[in-house]
Design a protein around this nucleic acid. Sequence first.
RNA 1: GUGGCUGUAGCUCAGCUGGUUAGAGCAUCAGAUUGUGGUUCUGAGGGUCGUGGGUUCGAACCCCAUCAGCCACCCCA
Length: 451
Amino acid sequence: MTHPSLPQGTRDFGPDVVRKRNYILNTIKNVFELYGFQPLETPAMENIETLMGKYGEEGDKLIFRILNNGLDNPDKQEQAKKEFEKILHGKSSVAITERALKYDLTIPFARYVAMNHKQLSFPFKRYQVQPVWRADRPQKGRYREFYQCDADVVGSNSLLNETELAHIYHEVFTRLGIKNYELKINHRKILTAIAELCGGAEKMNDIAITIDKLDKIGLEKVKEELNRKGFDQKQTAIIEHYLSISGTNEKKLLEIKSLLNNNETGKKGISEIELLTTQDSRLTIDLTLARGLNYYTGIIFEAKANDVKIGSIGGGGRYDDLTGLFGVPGIPGVGISFGVDRIYDVLEELHLFPEQLQISTQVLFFNLGDEESKSAFDLMQRLRQKNIRCELYHEKAKFDKQFKYAEKKNIPFIIIIGEEEIKNKKCKIKKLSTGDQQDLPWESLSEFSFI
RNA sequence: GUGGCUGUAGCUCAGCUGGUUAGAGCAUCAGAUUGUGGUUCUGAGGGUCGUGGGUUCGAACCCCAUCAGCCACCCCA
């Protein structure tokens, strides 16, 4: 027998943690529902072709693949060995792994929409809260199994969706008590326009990935990296100019307009951003925002908590044609995602979890013996019918022990029913936080307010 | 996937240049206290020193491998 252990990058969640996580998840879900989104769940695993090639070359490497069963079948062994060669060369083989764990919620959602587009009424607004898996090397705030909470609208080009999604961010952060955050936006078409100025739209991803690092590695390193990626001096200068744009949203818009001149792609991006930021002054234009995933084509979002070094706690954007990957072209969409694990860390660090989250049982009935506990049990059931969460100590024990149990479990009230009390049909109620204690007749117990 | 740092009781950590039986605080359990907790006092239990090998008369300490955590890169929530 070896020591029990967990796979790298995975976690158990104990009672306290689950309560806190549920608080976050329920807050987010409630807001999603408030804005008319409907729940969806998809399987933990997908056929591997559904996932491969959707997240870029790096992404493919991070997909957890599931070994096929039955490879030990003697009839198939020769073929299995041959196919395994492909794996050794970094390719994938359906004969070896035909399924994989899902890597995000967006692609499985796109698959779902593509499969069901004839039944769905558009625009289709769904939210999804499920674990996803990535074979990344774990670090703080980065796990191999983690939850994503996404909300997407598909089948609508309206910018109203972007507006609504921005409001969802505001609403969720407000409800969670996160005050100092920044909701940054940018537009992929602006990045495309810059790429066009630098010689070709296909360079967009190179530019995007590099400038995204600006606040982390600084301008000089960004320029170095651009050089390495084959940008000449003139092109680097354009990008440098682009990155130097700062100030208020209005000022940024003015400057980017002049830099992009009359680039058609750029104009569209600028006008959309302009519209959104004039509608919602809480948005910050961040021209260095790029987002790694390459299916984004329009507005992109990123939410950042300012008081903690954790960084991004949510992100999203518009994609023109996600279901096209699955043979159903022409369904555009836009979506956002919340990083639950990181929001958890933010709330923990800023002490924003409500205190009463950890109160599960409200009342503990002391157990003073067989006779006494019968009466206690009856009374307890009355309270439970009133939806008051109670428990009876599991055996007769010294007061000391029962008090400590209540304390440890953070139970605010205890009720004592002993020989005396049975005789008088009364009980003693004690509030542990203050030490206040009173006698109450049995009939009026269920009217007592346990606050 | 590449490189670096770390790993001692349930938790936080001591442990000297390698030297007998590896320590402390907190937590747990029991008692002081037979119907009133949080304080205090007394006592007890609890350790394959991450795991496996090697060097040595002798290893928690040195070497190698492996696993896990953290950090940087890559990428990302």
